[in-house]
Write a protein that binds this DNA or RNA. Sequence first.
DNA 1: ATGAAAGCGCTAACAT
DNA 2: ATGTTAGCGCTTTCAT
Lengths: 354, 354
Amino acid sequence: MTADAPRPGRPVTLEDVARAAGVSRATVSRVVNGTPTVDPALRRKVEDAVEATGYVPHQAARSLVTRRTDSVALVISERERRPVAAPFVGRMFTDPHFGRVVGGLLDVLRPAGVQMLLMLVDDEASRRQFVSYVRQGHVDGAVLVSSHAADPLPRLLAESGLPAVLSGRPAREVPLPYVEVDQRAGARLAVAHLLSRGRRRIGTIAGPQDMPAAQERLEGFRDALAAHGVTEAPWAEADFTRAGGAAAMRRLLAERPDLDGVFVASDLMAQGALQTLLRAGVGLPHDVSVVGFDDSEAAVACEPPLTTVRQPVEEMAAELARLLLARISQPERERESAPGSRVFRPVLVERGSA
Amino acid sequence: MTADAPRPGRPVTLEDVARAAGVSRATVSRVVNGTPTVDPALRRKVEDAVEATGYVPHQAARSLVTRRTDSVALVISERERRPVAAPFVGRMFTDPHFGRVVGGLLDVLRPAGVQMLLMLVDDEASRRQFVSYVRQGHVDGAVLVSSHAADPLPRLLAESGLPAVLSGRPAREVPLPYVEVDQRAGARLAVAHLLSRGRRRIGTIAGPQDMPAAQERLEGFRDALAAHGVTEAPWAEADFTRAGGAAAMRRLLAERPDLDGVFVASDLMAQGALQTLLRAGVGLPHDVSVVGFDDSEAAVACEPPLTTVRQPVEEMAAELARLLLARISQPERERESAPGSRVFRPVLVERGSA
DNA sequence: ATGAAAGCGCTAACAT
DNA sequence: ATGTTAGCGCTTTCAT
């Protein structure tokens, strides 16, 4: 921290700096904003005055005229919260995935001097609040993480005209770019690995089938098996949580006790599945091979460590931020031809579970 | 969503509403801000005009005069980032603890109409950016989550005069209220449980000893043991990560192969410790009992599930938000006598590991 | 290259 | 109870 000038009673304004430097407000403004057409000598003077006074531009005043806020919203859209909520925590927040997304976004946003607001939208009231917020022009753009297919927010956001990008392909087509991993390819990778391990009685624990990502992982799983001549495979649906995965594994096991391989559509669920398997006395990976999806902390926390499909979450989030920044600095008319969605390639990470 | 008026080319201002309603700007402002002294008939008229025009107040214009932004910063202060950082993710973000804090804060902030900015401070540059941001008056207050003792931010924040609160007691005294759990009491709970299980050769895996929370948990552990006549107990230090916990457990085990109980200062580390124990062929909880700290998702994800010291993170975060809101709406002079720090009582949650 | 001046949209005295 | 008016601090024409 540089030694700040003693905090005056009244905050320092452009006016003060101008007076101190003996120039006009306009010149100070130019220097502060890096306009090139300023006499070097004057520039020095102004810079000294800024330093001496401890001047910092007032954001609201600036926004009022520039109509930019240099901030974006990270919007977490979740299904309606439970009616009686003791302190409530969205599922998203407790998912380690969320933290990785935040980290990736901040990696790009911070160097660009763009702040990030965290908004949770999970009911009609908060949706109104959000839309109103957007219309107030309080943010320059938004990153939307939507967790269910029926979510009206992607469309709402697209219609608002605010620059926005989506984490994950939306359920219904929406004129907004998104970033995601090739879900089908990921599932295929998992199945191929299971097959290469000699597994033939393969099942899957899928994510919520109202989410595109979950659907595609299931489809990819089926396609890969079909290509290998297997037209029917047992599966159970869960909600992307560890507990859900554990329960699904119990159902799967009850239905097909002879299972020798399972593809679980998320590491968190796989962690639960592993618990179930362990308690059922199933040898891992000897009796049953398990492949997860994500390559999150959870994968390494598993016992045995999880063989899984890696999704470069941080890089994807960073790309999302870049996409958004690009859209923001684009005149609205050009936005049609803006850089489009990006699909990342998944990679299999081999550990102990398969 | 109410049907919005067609988006006009020019954004709707107070002026427009005033004209439409046939009143002055001041009256519209009063209605919008809920000033009671407005004729009901006029109020109706204005409300209709607002609805008809789709008016939404411009935040920047409002802030410029009120000097309030209705937003606060959640500041994550971490140690310097590693020099060569591929997409970087702060440790904090991947810790499930973080998500719970966010959830708890939002629980209080959202109903109050207060937005939350997420700021990561992890080097000199971002610290400058942050201090400057604060001085720009872009937020009304800040919640600081600081992860190491040498952190200059708590003091910096206190000196800035911005209303602020701390998650966790700061290493060095700072005139800012904080919220935390009674760390010593928690550690005592853990030790008492271990003793009640007949364990006598008890060790601990402590957190980073430059963090007050970690220090106190270690001290509480020692006190409890001392009260029981045990004056020396083996311990290892780790960094609150799973991997760190696993490594610490290896060291502890090498040093004292006859250990029969261990208190691990966080669930995440305990998860790692359990892995180490399992791989060493130690029976849980038969041979060794383990008690964690936090009661996070990680505790339930463990095999066997972790007996742990519950920390009401969400409630604590909510309290933090309330404390901050209270300070914000307080004239600066009264802030001395503001509601002070709050210490929550921990509870032991019994599961399978001890 | 620099300065003067006109707002950006809103709230808060103040006057009525 | 309502309207009038004076800014809040900044950027940005428009002159010079």
